[in-house]
């Protein structure tokens, strides 16, 4: 299964989309599929400084809970408030309406620690 080409990925199944100095973060289609019906997402507070690959929240499905690791470090600019009432959008549209949070990048070089679509595809199709 091909992964969206405009994104970078982490081994923990998060994606990041770099837009200038900022980035948008979410979980991959593979991740939402293996978690099942997502019922709640706990996100970091706006304004919080987060470190690349640090634990910043949790994703809960009906019968599982999984730590959320940020693929990129920086300051949290915005979180997807809509998830509070509609966590299912992470299942429906993980790369669109189901985005999680936006970050002001601390260090643009951190993207070098991430996986390309092709490399992530190897993990996700194992």
């Amino acid at each position: 299964m091909a992964q969206p080409e405009n994104l970078l990925y982490s081994k923990e199944h998060e994606w990041v989309k770099i837009e200038g100095d900022n980035a948008v973060v979410g979980i991959t289609d593979y991740a939402q599929n293996s978690l099942g019906d997502i019922v709640y997402v706990e996100l970091p507070r706006v304004g919080k400084q987060i470190e690349q690959f640090g634990n910043v929240g949790v994703v809960e499905s009906v019968k599982a809970v999984s730590d959320l690791f940020t693929p990129i470090g920086g300051e949290v600019l915005e979180i997807n408030d809509a998830l509070e009432n509609d966590p299912a959008s992470v299942n429906r549209d993980p790369y669109g309406a189901g985005w999680l949070f936006k970050v002001k990048l601390a260090d643009a070089n951190e993207k070098n620690n991430l996986l390309s679509p092709a490399d992530y595809d190897k993990i996700a199709t194992e």
Binding site: S61, K63, A64, V65
Partner: peptide, 13 residues
């Protein structure tokens, strides 16, 4: 419901 809070799923967390 909301069982993901509980010990049998979350264990040490």
């Amino acid at each position: 419901t909301l069982q993901a809070r509980e010990q049998h799923i979350r264990r040490e967390r």
